[in-house]
């Protein structure tokens, strides 16, 4: 283990804001994509149950 204390780990030698912001952005990207996927999944399944004969539509907008 490289770090002596939690505060040193969080401070990242003075680069804490930049390093943790990058980690937070990566997590936000993953969460955002997962939320979008979940929303699209619910919308599509709901529509398929309501209208079994629905015509296929365009690409990514599964929520429409």
């Amino acid at each position: 283990m490289k770090w002596d204390s939690l505060s040193a780990f969080m401070a990242m030698g003075g680069y804490g804001f930049y390093v943790w912001s990058a980690v937070a952005l990566a997590l936000l990207m993953v969460l955002g994509e997962l939320c979008w996927l979940r929303h699209s999944q619910h919308s599509l399944h709901h529509r398929l149950r309501q209208q079994p004969n629905t015509a296929p539509d365009r690409g990514w907008h599964t929520g429409q």
Binding site: L37, Q41, L44, L48, P52, T54, A55, P56, G59, T62
Partner: peptide, 8 residues
């Protein structure tokens, strides 16, 4: 999802 959508 796309498969389900296109093959609805």
């Amino acid at each position: 999802l796309l498969i389900l959508q296109r093959q609805a």
